[in-house]
């Protein structure tokens, strides 16, 4: 099964939901576009979590173009699709590898968003390409976080660097990169403890990890990935803002897209923070990771 099919399957339920909503509005061949239609359209867009602002913008666009006309469903969907594609437009954006030496990747996010599982999936992807991976268990706070990453490391044949519970995560991060340099690993991925973006002390700790990585290898960390739970609502915007402020995130991994959640908040994030989505997580297995392609993402929504 190709990546695109996988993504499509993950989004199937989402698609059905969004589709039935809009299709319901157009039971006959065409319908007069008036306030009621636009309001219904607005509602079905808001349900995707894309946010009031983005939804309103799309509805206004549709309104300007089609108000007081009888329009077929296809035409309207076409406009919305184009609008969404425009909002999300970006080239496919895989991991950028370091020109030489190990590529250092830092992963951050709020509690329970799926950081460790996403790291496992990234590791699987790298291992499949024959790259050697070392994982740094810099989540020294949560009980058994190190063990959780350790289990994945042994399943995926990657090395693990860990510290004592409660020890300084920056030191674990440092040793991880040191190990990557000494033993010639291709990729070093540093896991961090989940934290809410409003906890200033913890955000400073994250910034420190970021600084430490930068001192060891030129241009490191080469990627700072923010893991975002697809069920997250408008709080995702705040997460993207604060994490980007603290550690200059380079992209989003949108996890848990295999449920009914629509992950529409990435539209709002794209609009307000500009952070692109790099990967999407579409299942619990280690290979359930797909490259984010905005066009397919939008097409899959309306397929």
């Amino acid at each position: 099964m190709g990546l695109f099919d996988q993504l499509k399957q993950g989004l199937r339920k989402t698609t059905q939901l969004l589709n039935t909503d809009i299709r319901d509005l157009f039971k006959a061949e065409g319908r007069l576009v008036d306030d009621a239609v636009l309001e219904e359209l607005f509602e079905s867009l808001v349900k995707t979590d894309m946010g009031v602002q983005a939804a309103r913008q799309i509805v206004d666009d549709v309104g300007a173009q089609f108000r007081a006309r009888v329009v077929s469903m296809d035409e309207l969907i076409g406009v919305i699709r184009a609008k969404l594609k425009e909002l999300l437009a970006q080239p496919a954006d895989p991991i950028r590898f370091a020109a030489s030496g190990p590529t250092v990747i830092m992963v951050a996010g709020v509690n329970g968003c799926g950081k460790t599982t996403s790291i496992a999936k990234l590791t699987k992807m790298f291992r499949d390409r024959g790259l050697r991976v070392v994982l740094g268990a810099a989540d020294t706070f949560r009980a058994a976080a190190v063990e959780q990453l350790g289990i994945w490391a042994s399943r995926l044949d990657a090395q693990l660097v860990k510290g004592q519970p409660g020890s300084d995560p920056a030191s674990v991060a440092h040793r991880t990169v040191a190990k990557a340099l000494d033993d010639g690993f291709d990729v070093a991925i540093v896991d961090t403890a989940g934290r809410l973006q409003t906890q200033q002390g913890l955000m400073q700790q994250l910034a420190k990890i970021h600084r430490v990585l930068g001192k060891q290898v030129d241009g490191a960390p080469h990627e700072v990935l923010l893991v975002l739970d697809a069920t997250t609502g408008q709080n995702g915007i705040s997460q993207a803002k604060h994490f980007t402020d603290a550690v200059q995130c380079t992209g989003i991994v949108l996890a848990k897209l295999d449920g009914t959640a629509k992950g529409g908040v990435v539209v709002a994030i794209r609009q307000q923070v500009g952070l692109p989505v790099k990967y999407v997580g579409v299942g619990e297995q280690a290979d359930d990771l797909a490259l984010f392609e905005p066009d397919s993402f939008v097409d899959a929504l309306f397929a």
Binding site: T48, D49, T232, G259, K262
Partner: peptide, 12 residues
């Protein structure tokens, strides 16, 4: 339930 959940909260 996670307080940060969006519109999906009621579905689940």
């Amino acid at each position: 339930v996670d307080a940060m959940t969006g519109q999906d909260a009621v579905l689940s």
